[in-house]
Amino acid sequence: MTTLTRDAAPSSAPAKRARRWKPSEVRAGYAFLTPWLLGFFLLTAGPMIASLYLAFTDYNLFTDPQWVGFDNFTQLFQDPRFLQSAKVTAIYVLVGTPVKLVAALAVAMLLNMKHRGQGAYRSIFYAPSLIGASVSIAIVWKAMFIDDGIVDTVGQFFGMQAGGWVGNPDMTMPMMILLAVWQFGAPMVIFLAGLKQVPAELYEAASVDGAGPVRKFLRITLPMLSPVIFFNLLLETIAAFQVFSSAFIISGGSGGPAGSTLFYTLYLYIRGFNDFRMGYASAMAWVLVIVVGVITAIFFKTSKSWVHYSGDAR
C-alpha cells in the first residue's frame, strides 16, 4: 500500500544506471518488437522517406519528379492560402483540443461513478463518435447549424443573431470545434479505461485519512491517470493538427466558405490531389512534421515531471 501511494505521488525519475545489457533481455526485446520492426521497414519507412524526397521535387503524379531544391518551401511561406490554413489549424488546435479533453475527462468521471444505467449512458455518449465518421455527418451537422436550425433557434433565444452558422465564415470555426467536442467519445473511453486502472484501495485509504473528493482527485486520480492524460493530450493534439475528414466532408473538400475551414491537411490534399502538386504537398507535410515534432518533443520532455508510471518508478 505504502509503496503504491508513494508511486502515485510525484517522484523524481529513476536515476539512469550504467548497465550491461543482458543477452537474454536483448533477444526477448527484439523478438517482441519483430512485428513492429517488420511493419516499420516494410510499410512505413520507405513511403516516409519517399515523401521527404518528394518535398524537394516538382511531382505531378503522372510524370517523374523533378528536383527543385528548396523551391517548394520558399513558395510555401509566400502562399497566402498556406498561411490561412496554418492560422485556421492553430486556432482549432488551441481551442478545440483542450475543450474536448476536459469534456472527455469530465464525462468519463461522471460515467465512472456508481450509478444505475451507466452502460447505457456510456453507449449514448459514444454514439457521436460513431456517427462522426460517417459520410452522412455533413448533412446531419449542417442541418443543426442552418437558418432556424436547432442551434440558431437556441441562439436566438439567448439573443444571438448569427443566423445559420454554416454559411457564415465567422461561425464555421466554432461549428467545427463543436463537431470535434461532440465526438469526445474516443478520449472518454480511454479515460474510462485509465480510471479503471486506479486501484480502489487508494481511494478507500484516502477516505480513511479523511480526504475529500477534490483532494482525492488531485492526489490520486490525476497522478494515477497521468499516463493516460498524457496519451490523450498528445494524440488529440497531433490529431487536431492533422484534422482532415470532418473539414473535407463538411466543406465538400473546398475548405470554404471563404477559406474558413481550410485546415492544413485539407489544403495539403487539395494541393496534392486536385492541383497535382504532390511535391508541394509533401513539403507542407514535412513542415507540419517539424512543427508537431517540436511540440511532441516538448510534451515528452515536460512529461517527466508530471507523468507517473507505476511500473517505472522503482
Binding site: 543482458k22 533481455e25 526485446g29 516499420f40 515523401s51 504537398a281 507540419l288 512534421v289
Partner: peptide, 30 residues
C-alpha cells in the same frame, strides 16, 4: 517490448514510432 524489456535501441525505436504519427498520411498514399 517497449514498456517491460530493457534492450539497446529501445528508445530510438520508440522515438521513431512516435515519429510515424506526425506525418499526414496523404503524402504516403502514393
Amino acid at each position: 517490448a517497449f514498456s517491460r524489456i530493457e534492450f539497446p535501441g529501445r528508445n530510438i525505436w520508440f522515438g521513431l514510432m512516435i515519429g510515424t504519427l506526425l506525418l499526414p498520411f496523404h503524402v504516403v498514399i502514393i
